[in-house]
Design a protein around this nucleic acid. Structure first.
Lengths: 142, 142
DNA sequence: ATAAAATAGTTGCAACACACAACTACTTCT
DNA sequence: AGAAGTAGTTGTGTGTTGCAACTATTTTAT
């Protein structure tokens, strides 16, 4: 049962990573003045430029009602714009306002900086291996 | 700026992993009949056998007030026992009841099984590398 | 063409998760 | 003995979430 032991090791190490990431996100949050869920939504909207509500909900794994409210808060904060799609008026198109874009860029920058720091703390000869390992693991999660 | 590109790659891949893990946890939850926070607490209590509230709160990165309430719910569900420490009566010792232990074992089993499955889907010659990579990354997060 | 089914989104509801601040009850330090 | 410190609980407010019921619109089937 050697495999069982190693699998537990894998579980444990992922658990530790999860915790670190949790702390990271918690710290991240304070900075941009938006809540956790809002922060995620902004990143997702910013990347897609223009998205519908359900697409957004799917990509974040949330119920569309939850998404609707989160977007609503973002609209109230002036970070996001919601418009009816003239093609099919059931849809709304969601996109960042100017101040939304600023927040988005700020998040992106901070995150990229943070990861650059992490990257630089990884020994040079191990870097490629780490990226490869994550790829493999991702597919193993299927 | 090659490093910047790779660091972004790292960020992206971790993001993807986070999402997978999130989905995993969500599925996990339903099974044991306890909430997300409760599930985490049970695992932590089960591992430590006997812990104080603040220790528990620290290990999960939560405020002690939050922890107090979560434990309270677990006590109400009959999964956890709370006793005054006779040595120092400021402390409470928290431990699993018999049914709590059952839930704990069930969670452990399910998780270990899941990770065994993941482990087996990793090519044999890549396994050691993956564990090593995670270790390195963990320290790089510092 | 029109009624029925499907789809996108919103709102009412109820529960959970969480932190800060103020509190009680103990213990330790001086 | 009194002051300071520590463990835990409770009050309060915010944010997150999903389900179910609803409206508005478009597509499909008769």
């Amino acid at each position: 049962m050697e495999d069982g032991v190693s699998a537990k090791e894998l579980r444990e190490i992922i658990r530790q990573l999860e915790r670190k990431l949790g702390i990271l996100e918690k710290n991240e949050m304070g900075c941009c003045g938006v809540s956790f869920a809002q922060c995620h939504a902004i990143v997702e909207i910013g990347r897609g430029k223009k998205v519908s509500l359900n697409l957004l909900a799917d990509s974040l794994g949330l119920d569309s009602s939850t998404m609707s409210r989160t977007v609503n808060n973002l609209v109230n904060n002036g970070l996001v714009q919601r418009e009816l799609d003239p093609e099919d008026r059931r849809y709304v198109t969601i996109q960042l306002t100017e101040s939304g874009k600023k927040v988005f860029q700020h998040i992106e920058e901070t995150m990229n900086n943070y990861f650059l720091g992490v990257w630089e703390r990884i020994p040079t000869d191990k870097r490629a291996q780490i990226l490869e390992s994550f790829q493999i693991l991702l597919t193993a999660f299927q």
